[in-house]
Design a protein around this nucleic acid. Structure first.
Length: 404
DNA sequence: TCTGGGGTCCTAGGACCC
DNA sequence: TCTGGGGTCCTAGGACCC
């Protein structure tokens, strides 16, 4: 059966989130990110883009392009709360939602269109408008028969765009697009392909079709076949239902040092800050950590990682920290370091913790409890007066931590 | 005064077993 | 009379995405 899959992507999400906090930022050139050594633009407002500011650009460069740029630091916890609001909003339409990141998801609307042959923009326009009215977020929507095409579609018109890609329109809409806009082909691969005179998605399609071995040999195993399937609309259209952006199999933190150094104590102190940051986020979630990774990035941007697998998954601060410190002593060899980081890996749900059912209730939570705070934020941001109070049980029921 | 920090996934190649 | 080769499992490092 032909499916109706939408990819819904929030427009300049971090900027929009900050505008909701501080409406004075609206229609101004705003960049979200760190303003300091190594700071880059995480995302920026459309006004800032008019000056040539882009995601990933060093902040000092952005300031040169746009002297009036307003720089706002990243507030990830707040974005996460807002992101969950967005996904709850979508649930009024269907539960067939696959959360892909903090600001985008795939939704299977097939059932809703079962009896309606006239697939058009109206329905999606209504979602857009309702989302904006209720939560204040803007989004772009791509609609097609597969997740890949929906994803490619949402990128074609922004902000507040709606793009329907029908099978007969794939070539017209996608083949002239630059090669790096193909989802899954990044800078490295684009560079290789351009050196082989593959500059557009269409170029790549025909090269594979014509069995151009020079090109095919640069792709990973089975990728050529996969690309043809994607561009002919025959790739997977399955939605893997998940409920939260916050279900992770790892939690990490990296920190760029104020200056490159090989000083043992300076590096160790930053590493411990990283560890504490990870632990604080990890500790909220009733998880066990099954492995610890330390990462160094050197002046030349090469990275070195060191992973310790734990015999038994653990959540004890002192135990994990002891491992961190002994690992650090083992591997640190006085090389000059630019960035250090820690990742908690192999996260699994801690089934040993028994929680009384009554504790799932919103009103039973202590005011300092992270779940309580999250709910408070969440309810505060729902603008519709009629929406009912969300209870902790609604959230927790849907938690499904751990790996498949 | 270049190049963040949150992640996931893939692969080459080493370790190990028989 | 020198170290094959098939298989599995694991991990470091890198590519990619937002």
């Amino acid at each position: 059966m032909i499916k109706v899959i939408a990819h819904i992507d929030l427009d300049a999400f971090f900027v929009r989130a900050e505008e909701l906090k501080n409406p004075k930022l609206e229609n101004k050139p705003v960049a979200i990110g760190k303003d300091g050594r190594g700071g880059i633009v995480s995302t920026c407002s459309y006004k800032a883009r008019e000056f040539g500011v882009k995601s990933g650009m060093p902040m000092f460069k952005a300031k040169l392009l746009c002297p009036d740029l307003i720089i706002v630091p990243v507030d990830f916890n707040y974005y996460e709360v807002l992101s969950n609001e967005f996904y709850y909003f979508l649930k009024q339409y269907t539960s067939k939602i696959q959360v892909a990141s903090i600001d985008e998801c795939y939704v299977d609307f097939t059932d809703l269109f079962k009896n309606n042959k006239n697939l058009n923009e109206d329905f999606f326009r209504q979602i857009q408008e309702s989302l904006y009215k209720k939560i204040g977020l803007k989004c772009s929507i791509g609609v097609s028969t597969t997740t890949f095409l929906a994803k490619m579609g949402s990128d074609l018109k922004k902000p507040m765009g709606i793009t329907i890609i029908r099978k007969k329109d794939i070539q017209k809409l996608l083949f002239s697009r630059p090669i790096n806009t193909y989802y899954g082909i990044g800078n490295k691969m684009s560079e290789k392909l351009r050196s082989l005179n593959i500059n557009t998605i269409g170029d790549l399609y025909y090269a594979i079709k014509n069995n151009n071995q020079k090109v095919i040999s640069h792709l990973i195993k089975n990728e050529a076949e996969n690309i043809i399937n994607c561009l002919e609309g025959n790739s997977s259209d399955d939605i893997f239902e998940n409920n939260h952006f916050s279900n992770h199999s790892s939690i990490g933190n990296r920190r760029t040092l104020p200056y490159d150094t090989n000083d043992y104590n300076t590096i160790l102190q930053e590493l411990i800050k990283s560890f504490d940051d990870c632990y604080n986020r990890f500790n909220d979630k009733n998880l066990l950590c099954g492995g610890l990774t330390i990462v160094f990035r050197f002046t030349n941007f090469k990275t070195r990682t060191y992973t310790k697998k734990l015999d038994t998954p653990n959540d004890d601060y002192n135990y994990l920290k002891k491992i961190l410190l002994s690992d650090f002593d083992n591997i640190f060899d006085n090389q000059t370091v630019r960035q250090v980081g820690v990742t908690f890996e192999r996260l699994i749900k801690n089934y040993n913790v028994q929680i009384q059912m009554s504790l799932f209730d919103y009103e039973y939570y202590e005011e300092k409890d992270p779940i309580y705070l999250m709910l408070k934020e969440f309810n505060k941001h729902i603008k519709n007066e009629n929406s009912k109070l969300i209870r902790a049980s609604d959230l927790l029921e849907e938690q499904d931590y751990g790996r498949k």
